[in-house]
């Protein structure tokens, strides 16, 4: 146990002055401002469905921002060893598998903060703009779960790529392309978009939107949480973790 704590502490030291917290803060602030911006001139009808609007829109913003944001965080945390060519020395002192896990835990810590900040800010925006809709706590929980689960899958992919590639151009290119593909896939039928990993920031929202063309008004209605899909996605995450670790363990250093 002491060994794990010591290894995590070492990762924390390595992450010092790497400005990863600046990326996290910038992402959270941007999401907050972008969400709040939409309510600056909200009328009573919009305030009456304010929380639903946020629960529906934030996943879309996440699809645009988080894939690239997480790829930047993963790259910042992983290029230390790649740049300094220290993996060879490090792996004589530390098990390669434990190294992969520690990096993952530190990265997921950042993701946890992003998901938590976003969830808390939903309640904060509601109070600030005096939403008249009642906030359902289970929706907040589901939102947190969605951001964290989808983010974990993306982070696993990015960390594995960042550790495998000598040049960080490739993982960042994948992050950028992922944001793009994820955003576009939302305009496709559900069966198609579910094949795209980056679209999962939006796949578990238990809300659907109805746009009335005549009145040009948007309304939201609740749908069931796709539990089967979520469990299947968790299985994919476990598979990605196993594959990522396997590939890293096989990497010639």
């Amino acid at each position: 146990m002491t060994g794990v704590i010591r290894q995590l502490q070492a990762e924390r030291y390595k992450a010092k002055r790497r400005h990863s917290w600046a990326v996290v803060t910038a992402l959270c602030l941007f999401l907050l401002l972008w969400s709040a911006f939409n309510f600056r001139n909200a009328d009573s009808r919009e305030l009456a469905q304010g929380y639903s609007t946020l629960f529906y829109q934030l996943p879309l913003f996440n699809t645009i921002l988080l894939p690239l944001g997480l790829s930047v965080i993963a790259s910042r945390l992983c290029d230390w060893e790649i740049k300094g060519n220290t993996l060879k020395l490090l792996c004589t002192l530390q098990r390669k598998g434990a190294f992969y896990d520690c990096k993952l835990l530190i990265g997921l810590g950042y993701l946890f903060v992003i998901a938590l900040a976003e969830t808390v800010s939903i309640a904060g925006i509601g109070i600030l703009f005096r939403f008249t809709q009642t906030l359902e706590i289970h929706m907040l929980f589901l939102h947190f779960l969605q951001v964290f689960a989808a983010g974990t899958a993306i982070y696993l992919l990015q960390q594995t790529l960042s550790l495998l590639c000598e040049n960080q151009l490739a993982p960042l290119g994948v992050g950028l392309a992922g944001s793009f593909i994820g955003l576009f896939s939302l305009y496709f039928p559900t069966q198609v978009s579910r094949l795209i990993l980056w679209s999962y920031f939006c796949q578990f929202t238990p809300l659907a939107m109805d746009w009335d063309r005549a009145s040009r008004e948007i309304s939201f209605y609740p749908t069931a949480f796709p539990l089967g899909l979520f469990l299947g996605f968790l299985a994919v995450i476990i598979g990605m973790y196993a594959l990522g670790k396997f590939l890293f363990l096989r990497k010639e250093i």
Partner: peptide, 8 residues
């Protein structure tokens, strides 16, 4: 000095 930060 970071490769990734300017991109974000």
């Amino acid at each position: 000095r970071s490769f990734a930060l300017p991109i974000i």
